[in-house]
């Protein structure tokens, strides 16, 4: 398995009539999670989020790919 970089958001059982809907649903959840937090708190939330998701993915090869992609073009 390699890193998925095509659109991949979905919700089980939910019918979407527009391609952009699941992406926008996720983005709104993400931004809402940070609502009313200080910058420092937001950084902490982001760090925890990465750790939670990384453990969920588990596959070291996928994680290595994602880590490298995130460092590109800084």
């Amino acid at each position: 398995m390699s890193l998925i970089t095509t659109p991949n958001f979905y919700k089980t059982g939910k019918r979407y009539f527009r391609d952009f809907s699941p992406n926008d649903d996720f983005y709104e959840m993400l931004i809402d999670t940070h609502r009313d937090l200080s910058d420092e708190q937001s950084n902490m939330v982001n760090a925890k989020l990465i750790l939670l998701l990384a453990n969920h993915i588990g596959d070291m090869d996928v994680l290595a790919e994602a880590l490298a992609a995130a460092r590109e073009d800084l």
């Binding site: 970089t5 095509t6 659109p7 992406n23 926008d24 996720f26 983005y27 992609a69 073009d73």
Partner: peptide, 18 residues
């Protein structure tokens, strides 16, 4: 926007108006 240059999933997240 940065990831969108290279990755399709990020292009789908770019929202300049639906």
């Amino acid at each position: 926007l940065g990831l969108a240059r290279k990755h399709a999933f990020a292009r789908a997240l770019v929202n300049s108006g639906r």
